[in-house]
């Protein structure tokens, strides 16, 4: 790994200041994506600004029908949180299925959402629940946040501080993991709430996480796995690689979406 300068600011203001003067500074969350990338010389930031020392960054709370999870909350903490398990059990379950236990000890929700890996789990929940990404400068609706593979609406040096999830009447997540990496071959998050159903698909789309409109309308009139029987997704726009063709993934989305609806609580 190339040399870098490590900073551990105690406040968001100090973190912003450290990033502002750095030549090529990067936020460090749990490091479970950034450090492997640096080890392989695919990234070489001059400065790392660790946001793990900022107080309140890992808080989890519920108020006004909304679950707020601090950007620094570790996957293991979200999975084990009784607040999350009560409010949105599907989200706790999703967090408990990311990678492996040691990755979950360190990895954070903020890092996962900022990274927007096309096969990551959290983006499906953020988009599927119509959450809001809160940063040091503004609030961004999930529908405007994910802009394509590894691309988000975040400006250079903008720091995610929390994610706000509206609590749905029910939600479910199902993933068909790649047997080697455990990332999603296809993962589908479904949520049923006041304004109808939302369906977000990860792992499959060429542009990263996306909403499946036809499934949303079918589920909005009747939220049951059977409603998805007639729906199908076009293979155009699906990822194709050594693990599966575009047609295979398109088919898998329907199968996994039904499992997600069946699991919804």
């Amino acid at each position: 790994m190339y040399q870098t300068k490590y900073h551990k600011p105690a406040s968001i203001d100090d973190a912003v200041a450290a990033l502002a003067v750095a030549e090529d500074g990067k936020v460090l969350g749990g490091g479970q994506t950034l450090l492997p990338t640096m080890k392989q010389h695919l990234a070489s930031p001059t400065d790392l600004v660790d946001v793990g020392g900022i107080s309140g960054m890992a808080d989890i709370s519920v108020s006004d029908g909304c679950l707020t999870i601090g950007a620094g909350a570790r996957h293991a903490d979200v999975a084990a949180s009784s607040v999350v398990r009560d409010a949105i059990p599907a989200l706790a379950c999703l967090a408990g299925g990311i990678g492996d236990p040691a990755v979950r000890s360190m990895g954070t929700i903020g890092g996962s959402v900022a990274n927007n890996d096309p096969a990551a789990d959290y983006p499906a929940a953020v988009l599927g629940l119509g959450a809001t990404v809160v940063t040091n400068t503004r609030e961004i609706a999930a529908d405007d946040f994910f802009e394509g593979m590894f691309t988000t609406a975040l400006e250079e040096d903008e720091i995610i501080t929390a994610i706000k999830f509206p609590i749905p009447s029910s939600a479910g997540y199902s993933k068909f993991p790649n047997p080697a990496s455990r990332y999603a071959m296809v993962g589908v998050f479904v949520a049923n709430g006041g304004s109808g159903a939302r369906v977000a698909v990860t792992g499959a789309g060429q542009d990263g996480v996306f909403r499946a409109d036809s499934m949303e309308s079918a589920l909005s009139s009747n939220f049951s796995a059977g409603s998805l029987d007639g729906t199908s997704l076009d293979a155009d726009g699906m990822m194709a690689d050594i693990h599966g063709t575009a047609e295979y993934r398109a088919h898998l989305v329907s199968v996994v979406a039904k499992r997600a609806v069946t699991s919804a609580v």
């Binding site: 460090l28 490091g31 450090l35 492997p36 080890k39 790392l48 040691a102 990755v103 000890s105 360190m106």
Partner: peptide, 8 residues
């Protein structure tokens, strides 16, 4: 438990 190769 953490992967010591992935922590500074």
């Amino acid at each position: 438990a953490v992967k010591s190769c992935t922590v500074l």
